[in-house]
């Protein structure tokens, strides 16, 4: 009887010791990591547009049925051309918004006449985001010329998976974690254009 109690006590003592050690180890471990990470920020996924090759995996590999990746227009880089290679199909015959002339398969690029300048009509090109599926076709077309369109993860849609499925499938490894406070990446060129306008 006494031996049983002793054993009980011993077991409790050992358990208590192990617990204390475990708790301290956990606390120390967390403290170490927290200290090292400092004020580590939340990260989000983003595409580096200078590395992106517009392979199209963004449209198909996102865990969302409608990808969180969409095309973005850098208006500062767009020359508002009439014959826009990001808008018109390669085989287009006229420069109208008719379906047979359009490049975008879902009709998500909008072309709006702005003004005629120096005898040449100028158009603004917008991305209609709800229709864009992130296939990058317009991006590829635009890249043949000024390259004002580029793909970005749209954070109002992205669920910020701990492991982004597109990042794994990305052939150019253009997907990377960026700080949540700066959740978008610009093309170097687009950045330059933005700054040029700003200055």
């Amino acid at each position: 009887m006494t031996s049983a109690t002793n054993r009980q006590d011993r077991r409790q003592f050992l358990g208590g010791g192990a617990r204390t050690v475990g708790a301290m180890a956990l606390a120390g471990f967390s403290g170490f990591l927290a200290g090292r990470s400092g004020k580590a920020e939340e990260t989000v996924w983003q595409i580096d547009p200078d590395v992106c090759t517009t392979c199209g995996n963004c449209a198909t590999y996102c865990v969302l049925d409608e990808s969180a990746v969409k095309a973005v227009q850098c208006f500062d880089l767009c020359a508002m051309c009439d014959p826009c290679p990001g808008y018109f199909d390669l085989s287009h015959q006229e420069r109208t918004t008719a379906a047979e002339n359009q490049l975008c398969p879902t009709g998500a690029v909008l072309r709006t006449f702005i003004a005629e300048q120096a005898g040449v009509p100028r158009f603004e090109y917008y991305i209609e985001e709800k229709d864009c599926i992130g296939c990058g076709k317009c991006v590829e077309g635009c890249a043949m010329m000024n390259g004002s369109l580029y793909l970005q993860v749209r954070h109002d849609r992205c669920v910020n998976c701990n492991q982004c499925a597109i990042a794994i499938a990305c052939p150019s490894q253009a997907f990377r974690r960026v700080p949540a406070s700066q959740p978008y990446l610009m093309k170097k060129k687009a950045l330059a254009a933005t700054q040029r306008r700003g200055s």
Partner: peptide, 21 residues
């Protein structure tokens, strides 16, 4: 880099960049 054409009465739009949660 060329500036985008300046057109009277038409301001350059800015793209929307929704922030993450």
């Amino acid at each position: 880099l060329l500036s985008r054409p300046e057109i009277d009465g038409h301001a350059t739009p800015t793209a929307e960049f929704p922030e993450p949660r």
